[in-house]
Simulated scan of single mutants.
Amino acid sequence: MMTRRHLVHQLRGLGLRAGDLVMVHASLKALGPVEGGAAEVVRALIDAVGPEGTLMAYVSWDRSPYEETLNGTVLSEAARAEWPAFDPLTAGTYRGFGLLNEFLRKAPGAVRSAHPDASMVAVGARAHEVIGEHRLGDAYGPGSPLERLVSFGGKVLTLGAPLDALTVLHYAEAIAELADKRRVTYEVPLLDAAGRKVWCRAEELDSNGILDCFAREGEPDAVETIAKAYVADGRALRGRVGAAQCYLLDAQDLVRFGKEWLEVRFAVPPRPYSP
């Protein structure tokens, strides 16, 4: 049974430092038994980065109607009427990204972004700064919390989570100059200034496959493919925390690597010269 003190010691041994801004992806099952459970893991992470540090996570929304309204799919009027509006203060997190995220959302001082499907949460000294504005249409690219994570010199930590969980690589997809990027549309219910539910249409890059070759069922997407290449290149710190194989990665270096990896293979064809 791991204790909070042991976790902090191992996180520091992996390379986490006081003052770090770090995006966390965690599998509590892989981490193993921890005294105090998920809440104590959150406290250990906060202790590891200290009062000047900041934790961040991609939490999404457990009631996101992304799949139900994807690319023109229409919900019935009854379903639209019953669907709750997204409220970043109370909305639950998508459990497919791990139970730890729900505890981060409920941590004292937590700040959550206003994008319902690509919702991010942060806790710590720079939480408001890194979350900032998060508009529909800017889920993962310029103007998103991911861009601020990178520009602020942040890190990415996996605690037993698979490498296909590295959300920051969606930012690399967004800024890479590629031909034929896939886009999707969907609808989400938001609260207007008067507190009324309003359904809004969003258009974003396809986070499930930025190009057709990465959207084939049963095959790895670009995030997983790039992350594995990055780790194989020896650019990530690795070690064990609890029972979990963990990685600590520099967000700027990872995004730079991912952008170049994509552009080398799928760059926009040069335009013909015309005088």
Score class of each variant (00 low, 15 high):
R12M: 00
L14P: 06
G15M: 02
A18I: 08
A18G: 14
L21E: 10
V22T: 14
M23K: 07
M23R: 11
V24L: 02
L28W: 00
P33M: 00
P33H: 00
V34E: 11
V41G: 12
V42G: 02
R43M: 03
R43A: 08
A44G: 09
A44F: 00
G50D: 13
L55G: 01
Y58I: 03
V59A: 14
V59Q: 01
V59K: 01
W61I: 03
D62H: 09
R63H: 13
T69Y: 00
N71W: 09
G72S: 04
V74H: 06
E77K: 15
E82Q: 15
W83V: 00
L89F: 01
A91G: 11
A91I: 05
G92P: 14
G92N: 06
T93R: 13
Y94K: 10
R95L: 14
G96Y: 03
G98F: 11
G98T: 12
L100E: 08
N101C: 09
K106P: 04
V111W: 09
R112E: 08
R112A: 12
S113Y: 03
A114R: 15
D117N: 13
A118K: 09
M120K: 06
A122N: 09
G124W: 12
A125K: 15
A127I: 10
E133G: 06
G137L: 05
G141Q: 08
G141Y: 06
P145Y: 10
E147Q: 15
L149V: 08
L149R: 11
V150C: 02
G153W: 11
G154Q: 11
K155T: 01
V156M: 02
L157H: 05
T158S: 12
L159V: 04
L159W: 04
A161V: 01
A165D: 13
L166W: 05
T167D: 05
T167G: 04
L169P: 13
A172L: 09
A174D: 14
I175W: 07
E177S: 13
D180F: 04
R182L: 12
E187L: 02
V188H: 04
L190Q: 01
L191P: 09
A193H: 12
W199S: 05
E204T: 06
S207C: 05
A215Q: 11
R216C: 03
E217K: 14
P220K: 02
D221T: 08
D221Y: 01
E224N: 07
A227N: 09
V231A: 11
D233W: 04
A236R: 10
V241P: 15
A251S: 14
A251F: 10
D253A: 13
L254F: 06
V255Q: 07
R256M: 00
K259D: 05
E260Q: 12
W261T: 05
L262A: 07
L262H: 10
V264S: 05
V264L: 11
R265P: 15
R265L: 08
A267R: 15
V268H: 13
S274W: 14
